[in-house]
């Protein structure tokens, strides 16, 4: 099984530690990981802004880089969702279809393809899980509060096996954090207010570390936490699953 690692553009540039934790974790699990060097971005920033047509080049570049892998794994539910849901703007060749079918968010891949739950990690902190929307309601990486049915959450299933982790309950389990890509800038007031409310929910619950399947949400929350000097840390789920504290 050959696995291609996709590191989203902003993780590559701004949060390399998330990429490093992801590759180390996969290698620990004996996955044959390849990192194609020509990768850039899935195209989501343009597409969500309404400029899908400017993202054709990014989409094609993505497919070109990952077409030869059995699976494509990425530490971002949002990017995986974008490839799956919105790559209908380029011609649906066999390669494109294959890439769209085989792209996985990291937790989903570990739990449902590798079928591993206990990663031998330990992380003695109180954790608040932020269920990033595109992963949750797009990829269905967990049940959401709106839909009636079986309750599940991939990220929590993995965290439950991490030694020392205490999962803290939130009063609003899956409300959006307000990042939303360019929304964070074009609707600045609401974006910031949503983030502040989200953080307060975690603080009220005694959370020490907020984690998520998406660094974009965490970047937004971290920006607020740092500005307001609040006693919270954010870590991507890969960093926790790769910890041995």
């Amino acid at each position: 099984m050959k696995v291609g690692l996709f590191i989203p553009c902003y993780i590559n540039q701004l949060y390399p530690q998330v990429g490093i934790a992801t590759i180390e974790l996969l290698e620990k699990l004996n996955v044959d990981v390849g990192y194609p060097s020509g990768q850039t971005c899935c195209g989501q920033p343009m597409a969500n802004s309404g400029f899908e047509y400017e993202s054709n080049g990014a989409c094609s570049n993505f497919v070109e880089n990952f077409k030869d892998f059995d699976y494509i794994v990425t530490p971002s539910g949002s990017c995986a969702y974008h490839v799956k849901k919105h790559y209908d703007i380029i011609p649906q060749t066999e390669e494109v279809i294959k890439v769209r079918n085989n792209v996985y968010e990291l937790c989903d891949f570990i739990l449902n393809i590798l079928k591993i739950k206990d990663l031998g990690a330990s992380f003695p902190y109180k954790i608040g899980v932020h269920k990033s929307c595109h992963g949750l309601r797009g990829l269905r990486l967990g049940s959401c509060s709106e839909v009636v049915g079986k309750q599940y959450s991939y990220i929590e299933e993995l965290l439950q096996e991490v030694k020392g982790v205490e999962l803290m309950p939130l009063s609003r389990t899956d409300e959006c954090c307000g990042f939303g890509g360019t929304f964070a800038v074009t609707e600045e007031a609401i974006s910031v207010k949503m983030g502040k409310d989200k953080i307060q929910d975690h603080l009220d619950s005694g959370v020490e570390v907020i984690t998520a399947t998406d660094t974009s949400c965490l970047m937004h929350l971290e920006g607020l936490i740092n500005r307001n000097k609040q006693p919270l840390k954010v870590l991507h789920i890969a960093e926790i699953l790769n910890s041995n504290l």
Partner: peptide, 20 residues
Amino acid sequence: AWGKARDLPLGPKQSFDEWF
């Protein structure tokens, strides 16, 4: 508009690409 109420992340010295 990002920076009105939020800090930007610190730019790391090395990108993931470079680390790899």
